[in-house]
Simulated scan of single mutants.
Amino acid sequence: MKTAYVAVYETLADWEIGHLVVELRTGRFTGVPWTVVTVGESLEPVVTMGGMRVVPDVTIADVVPDEGDLLVLAGSGQWDVGGGEAFTKLAGQFLDAGVPVAAICGATAGLARAGLLDERKHTSAAKEYLQATGYQGTDRYVDARAVADGNVITAGPDSPVQFARAVLEQLGLADERKREAYEGVFHRADPAAYATLVG
């Protein structure tokens, strides 16, 4: 069974990765359930932005990037105060091992500061948001809901469904018809798309 490592830290933005994590863990629309492993800097519980208490399954030190299949980084307050360096270092190790990294909202700023977006097309909350990090990838910024390039999938905070869709595409877990139906159901509330999604 494939493994998705999900980074957890104080004020993690629950809603940003909710769609993705559910689809990976259940495989309800892809037919391929994954193991989801939460990763903390320590094994101490963290409290998400929504107030949920999460106890990490493992620490960063326990993770062997080339034994995983995906690293997921959500937004949180830490990214806007220059934090999260341990997780961006881990992201670099995943990418060096050829394993995809999916980052949404503030986590994209962390990747930008670490230089991981300089040579890859990417998106975020806004171009100006990433420019404030002083990174060198401004000319590769794409004004889109979600962008995948060079094993990095990025999205802004308003696009959790598109983020999930882009990651499923990157992982080869659903064909275009099913991905479009997924966005139809969960973003556009199109009841006609449901039959395609579950079919």
Rank of each mutant, 00 (worst) to 15 (best):
P45F: 02
G40T: 10
D139E: 15
M49G: 11
V58E: 08
Q162D: 15
K127V: 09
D96E: 15
V37E: 12
R113S: 00
Q131I: 11
L43V: 09
A61T: 01
G84E: 00
A112E: 05
A74F: 14
G134I: 01
Y129T: 11
I104C: 04
A155Q: 00
T38E: 00
D158S: 13
V72C: 08
A103Q: 03
A114C: 03
A155E: 01
E44N: 07
D149M: 11
D57I: 05
V152Q: 03
R145K: 14
V55M: 07
E119L: 07
Q78H: 12
D96M: 09
Q131H: 05
E41I: 10
L90Y: 04
G31T: 11
I153K: 06
G40W: 00
D80M: 12
T38K: 01
F94I: 13
C105V: 06
K127C: 02
E119Y: 03
S76D: 03
F87A: 04
V99T: 14
R120C: 06
G75Q: 04
V39N: 05
P100C: 11
I60S: 02
A166D: 08
D143S: 09
V63P: 05
S124K: 10
S159G: 06
V32F: 10
T154K: 10
A126R: 12
V147G: 10
G51D: 06
R120W: 02
G75P: 04
V72S: 07
A86L: 08
P65Q: 11
A114F: 03
D143F: 04
P65E: 12
E67G: 12
M49A: 14
Q93G: 11
T48R: 02
V142E: 07
R113I: 07
L71C: 13
Q131T: 12
L73Q: 06
T35R: 14
L117P: 04
R140T: 13
P100G: 09
D57E: 09
M49R: 13
G110P: 07
A102G: 06
F29N: 13
A112H: 00
V39I: 15
S42L: 03
F29H: 15
L116D: 05
L90R: 05
V63Y: 01
A103H: 02
G40L: 04
D118Y: 03
V63A: 09
T59Y: 02
E128M: 11
D118L: 00
V46R: 01
L71W: 05
R165Y: 09
T88I: 06
V47P: 07
T48M: 09
G110S: 10
D57R: 08
A164V: 09
P56A: 12
M52C: 10
S76Y: 02
L43S: 09
I60V: 15
A132N: 13
G92P: 01
D69I: 11
M49W: 11
K89E: 15
R165F: 08
R28G: 10
L71Y: 06
G115D: 04
A86T: 10
G156F: 01
T133I: 09
G68K: 02
G51E: 04
P45K: 03
L43Q: 03
G84T: 03
T138K: 08
T154V: 12
H122K: 01
A148G: 11
D149I: 12
R140Y: 07
N151S: 14
A61C: 01
A102P: 08
A132W: 06
Q78E: 13
E67Q: 15
S124T: 12
P33V: 13
T138I: 12
